[in-house]
Simulated scan of single mutants.
Amino acid sequence: MADDWNIHGKTVVVTGATSGIGRETALALAGMGATVVLAVRNQEAGQETAAMIRQNSLSMTSDDWISSLAVGPKLELAQPSSIRSFATQYQKQNRPLHVLVNNAGANYLSEGLSEDGVPLLTQVNYLGPYMLTRLLEGSLVASAPSRVINVSSVTHRYGLIENPANFLSRMRIIGALQATKLGNVLFTYELQRRLGHLGVQACAVDPGAVSTNIYKDSSLFTRQPLKWLIQNLYAPPSDGAAAVVHAASAPWQRQPKKPENLACLQFFARGVFAWPAITAFKGQQQGVIGNLRMQGWALRALSLSALDWPLRRLTQGRGLSQTRAVPSAPASYDQHLAAALWDLSADKGKLPRDISVGGRQI
């Protein structure tokens, strides 16, 4: 049985909404009648995005809808103080919050630290969304039923977090992105365990292989032939946003009440990224055999990523457009790791470890 859910009239916050998947997600959800708040670091670009969405929708929507689009307070995920300021200002506006889409992220950042001593990539991709969600948890509970959508990646499947304390305090050049994307899924599932009974659903999404600005600062993906592959074979952001839009707007199957039941934990993907050839990978393993399996899977995943969008165009989406729940990496179901990461993240972000609603910890 599906949950009774309709995005029309609901208030949605989308982070990183001035380009790529975030902008296309905001455009799609606004077109479905949601009240969309653009949470961005560049306010001028936010206003330009809002104008673009209004202009593209003038012919199909009413003036009532146009007024339901807003540029929120400035949000810079690299700066914990900015995250706190955003949450404070948002709550002062007395807006409901039915859907929080944690889309903003980065891939190639300097080796610097945030003001709280967290590696910048970890701060932007993992701890920033964690802090934002925790600071807005009261609004999410008050608006329930509500949802948190965390945009992860296929790379989480070979991510590794051996020590949560090190993950939050030490820069790892090799495997840093993958670790942050695994952290997104671990956080998603722990959030579901802690807030699910209060009507807040959480899921993670793999948007697939998408040609966005996330590759622009890479020394590898800006060289041929990978640059050509991304520009010509990866999906445009409008297609990449489809799985995120589905997670935010479509009814989910009604969830079991016990949070330890794996059916409660939702990870969405589409196209080849929902195929067992991708989802059956068991993650990093020790030894020569484990390394060979890892390399074989990585080659298979890269090959399939180059086929996903061309096959969808060739077949006009038949069999490759549906978004569905699939298994995430085995490491993402580690409850002890998720709980430890949650607690250490709360400490790092100067937040209570327990959920706090209306001034009461629950």
Rank of each mutant, 00 (worst) to 15 (best):
L341M: 01
A277D: 10
V185P: 08
H336Y: 15
L29P: 07
R170N: 11
V14F: 00
I7C: 04
L38S: 03
V200C: 13
A202C: 15
R318Y: 14
V124Y: 04
L198R: 13
V151L: 01
V71C: 04
F267L: 01
P129A: 00
N107V: 12
P259V: 01
E111I: 08
R172L: 10
S82I: 03
L135H: 09
R194N: 10
Q253I: 13
R293A: 10
A248K: 02
S328V: 02
Q285C: 08
A106Y: 03
Q93I: 09
G287F: 05
L233P: 06
Q93S: 15
S62N: 15
Y130K: 06
P237Y: 04
I7R: 04
G22L: 02
A346V: 04
L69Y: 01
V151D: 01
Q123L: 05
P236N: 02
N232P: 05
L198P: 08
E48G: 12
R41Q: 10
V36K: 07
S218N: 07
G20D: 00
I355G: 09
Q286L: 15
D354M: 15
A34P: 07
A142T: 12
P327Y: 04
L69A: 03
Y234T: 05
N94R: 13
K257H: 14
R293W: 12
T155H: 08
T15D: 01
L77E: 05
R194F: 11
T133F: 02
Q79N: 15
I289M: 14
L226N: 07
L299Y: 15
Q253Y: 11
P276T: 02
A274K: 07
S218R: 06
T88E: 15
F187P: 06
S328Q: 09
R223N: 13
A51F: 09
G196A: 10
S345F: 06
L168C: 01
T315R: 11
R157Y: 07
S332Y: 07
N166Y: 10
P330M: 13
F187G: 09
T155P: 01
R147V: 03
F167M: 04
P327D: 04
V205D: 06
F267I: 05
R318S: 09
Q201Y: 10
N232E: 05
G296Y: 00
H246I: 03
K10M: 06
V154M: 00
S238V: 05
L113T: 10
S85T: 11
S57N: 12
P352I: 10
C203T: 11
V210T: 05
I173E: 15
R312P: 01
A30P: 04
F187S: 00
R194E: 09
S19D: 05
A204M: 05
D64V: 12
Q322V: 15
V141F: 10
R300A: 04
V244R: 02
L58M: 15
L262R: 14
A70G: 12
A248Y: 00
G128Q: 02
N213P: 01
L38C: 01
H336S: 14
